[in-house]
Structure formats: structure tokens, C-alpha cells
């Protein structure tokens, strides 16, 4: 009797342990089992936000779980990245922002995170950075803008991020003009302010492309490496004789330390989402952003290289 009892107890114990551990295993294998939060580093309505919502929708179809977009605007993505760094690395929280949040701002702002605190996933598009002004501004190209600045004793400049502010300040110092940087939270607000002539010039990451051709904005210069396809007449900074350019990407990242299987699944789903016909069509044709999708390895290398450059340029300050 006692033997049978003991065996029964042992069996029961074994069974309960198996059952207790079973749900945990099942959850890990079935990621995702609950909605995923996609934090966006910029305010609603701008280019980053629109793209993020598009990716979220496509990702939702890939993973079969809702993807909730959550705008955490501020500091050029720093607010979002700080929250992302503290989030659990379980694949349920990912972030969408520009790469400068990770490879530029940590060297300018006192951020709580470092570039290697994240797992970099994929890029979605290349930004179409341009210096823009309102259609009614009294200057229409780079030279006229410089003349205007000298005449008026300076320019007001709407900036989305401390790094774009630094970038502009260096060029202004080179030209010996004064610029007053006005921090603005999203690309759309910059456009509104330059169109209303509250600001002289502003930095746009590409939302301005819908307002070209006498619809509110003029492009003074392309800030990317090359000219921007939608404003073929605006020269790049290199053509204007400055040894600077600012090529960057909208990209996705997760907190460091994602479990390998989840990471693989997430990267695959994101890649499919970012290259899906709908996303590609909407970005290329409707929003006029080139659909450049870098792999995690390419992206990580890009960020490491950029971090090293920025550390060198801004690190000693």
C-alpha cells in the first residue's frame, strides 16, 4: 500500500511540475501572444508617425497580433529611446525613430542610454532631409538666404532634434551668421511655422514633399548626400561647397537582449512588413520616400560607424 501511495505521490508531483512548466514553454514558443507596442519618437501627423503606422499595420498582418502605435515625441527621439531602453526585452515593445537618436544624440545630449544598448532591427526608408522655407519667404535659394540673414542680423531655424541644431549651427558658424534655434516637436509643425513665416527656415525630414510646387514650401538645399528626387533643382550642401551631409534612416530598434528566437521572428516579420507591396507602394508613390530596407547587420554597422564619427566630432565638448 505504502509503495503504491509513494508512487502515486511521485507521479502526481511529476505531473504537476510538467503542467506547471508547460504554459511557460508554450508562451515562449508562441510569441507573440499579446499586442505589441510600437513607440514612435515623433509626434502624430508627421512623416515618421505616418510611416510607423503603416509599418505597424503590415506587421500586424505578419504576426497576427495588434500592433499599437504610441507617440513619445521629444528631444529628437530621446524620450522614446530612453523609455525603450528601460522596456523589457521580450519583443513586445519596439521603437521607431531616426538613426540619429541612437548614433548622434548620445554624444550631444546627456542621454541615459548608449548606442550599444539596443538591438537594431531594420530600416524602412531613407530620410529626405532638406532645408525648407515658406513659399512667401523673401529668399528662394541658399545665396539669397545668406544675404537675408546678414541683412536681418540672423535667422530663426526650426529644428526637430538637438543634432540637426548642431549641424545647422556649425554651418552658420562657417558662414559667420547668427541662427536662433527654435525647438519644434514634429516635422508637420516645422512646415506650419515656416509656411506662416513664424520661422525663417526649418529642417524637414521629408514631409515637405507634399507641399512643393507653389503649395506652401520652397526647398533651399538638400541636406542628404545627394540631391533629393522631388526637388531636383535644389543643390546639395556638398555642391554648395560645404564638406557636410546628413544621410539618415527611419528605422526600428528593440531593447538589447531579445531572445534569439523572438528576434529572428521579429526581424523576419519586420522585413516582410517593410518590403511588402503596400508599404513600398505607399512610401514610394504616395509619400515619396525611397523604400530602403537595410538588414540588421548592415544597420548595426552603419550605426557603429556613425557613432564613432559623432563621438569624434562632438565627444570632446
Amino acid at each position: 500500500m505504502t509503495l503504491i501511495k509513494r508512487i502515486a505521490v511521485a507521479l502526481l508531483a511529476a505531473l504537476s511540475i510538467t503542467f506547471a512548466s508547460f504554459p511557460a514553454l508554450a508562451v515562449a514558443g508562441e510569441w507573440p501572444t499579446k499586442p505589441i507596442t510600437l513607440m514612435v519618437g515623433f509626434s502624430a501627423g508627421g512623416g515618421a508617425d505616418t510611416l510607423a503606422r503603416l509599418v505597424a499595420k503590415a506587421l500586424e498582418e505578419e504576426l497576427g497580433q495588434p500592433v499599437v502605435v504610441d507617440n513619445k515625441a521629444g528631444g529628437g527621439g530621446v524620450v522614446m529611446a530612453t523609455l525603450l531602453q528601460r522596456a523589457k526585452a521580450d519583443g513586445y515593445t519596439i521603437g521607431f525613430t531616426s538613426d540619429s537618436t541612437f548614433d548622434g544624440l548620445p554624444f550631444i545630449v546627456r542621454t541615459a542610454y548608449k548606442p550599444d544598448d539596443f538591438d537594431y532591427l531594420v530600416t524602412v526608408t531613407e530620410l529626405q532631409n532638406a532645408l525648407v522655407t515658406g513659399a512667401s519667404a523673401p529668399f528662394s535659394n541658399w545665396r539669397e538666404m545668406l544675404d537675408y540673414a546678414r541683412e536681418q542680423g540672423g535667422l530663426t531655424f526650426g529644428s526637430l532634434s538637438p543634432i540637426t541644431a548642431k549641424f545647422a549651427e556649425r554651418i552658420a558658424a562657417q558662414e559667420n551668421i547668427e541662427i536662433r534655434t527654435v525647438p519644434v516637436k514634429g516635422g508637420r509643425q516645422v512646415l506650419t511655422d515656416v509656411m506662416g513665416r513664424h520661422l525663417d527656415v526649418g529642417w524637414s525630414a521629408g514631409v515637405h514633399q507634399a507641399y512643393l510646387n507653389d503649395q506652401g514650401v520652397k526647398v533651399l538645399a538638400a541636406l542628404n548626400d545627394k540631391r533629393i528626387a522631388t526637388s531636383p533643382d535644389a543643390p546639395s550642401l556638398k555642391e554648395l561647397g560645404y564638406d557636410r551631409s546628413y544621410t539618415s534612416y527611419f528605422m526600428l530598434a528593440a531593447p538589447k537582449g531579445l531572445p534569439d528566437d523572438i528576434r529572428a521572428r521579429l526581424v523576419e516579420a519586420l522585413r516582410n512588413a517593410a518590403t511588402s507591396k503596400d508599404v513600398a507602394d505607399l512610401t514610394e508613390n504616395k509619400m515619396k520616400f525611397p523604400n530602403v530596407v537595410l538588414s540588421p547587420e548592415e544597420l548595426t554597422r552603419f550605426i557603429e560607424k556613425r557613432s564613432a564619427l559623432n563621438a569624434q566630432e562632438f565627444g570632446q565638448e
Binding site: A44, G45, L282, K286, M287
Partner: peptide, 22 residues
């Protein structure tokens, strides 16, 4: 103007842009 009057309008504005309406 394309300026949202409040947060709800900002969200609706995003939907406009997705559909290629500026």
C-alpha cells in the same frame, strides 16, 4: 491649413496622409 485642432484631429490627419490626401 493642415493643422490639427486637437489630438483627435492629429490622428485623423495621419489617416488623410496615408490615403495620399494632403
Amino acid at each position: 491649413l493642415g493643422i490639427p485642432g486637437n489630438v483627435a484631429a492629429a490622428i485623423i490627419l495621419g489617416a488623410f496622409l496615408i490615403h495620399g490626401i494632403t
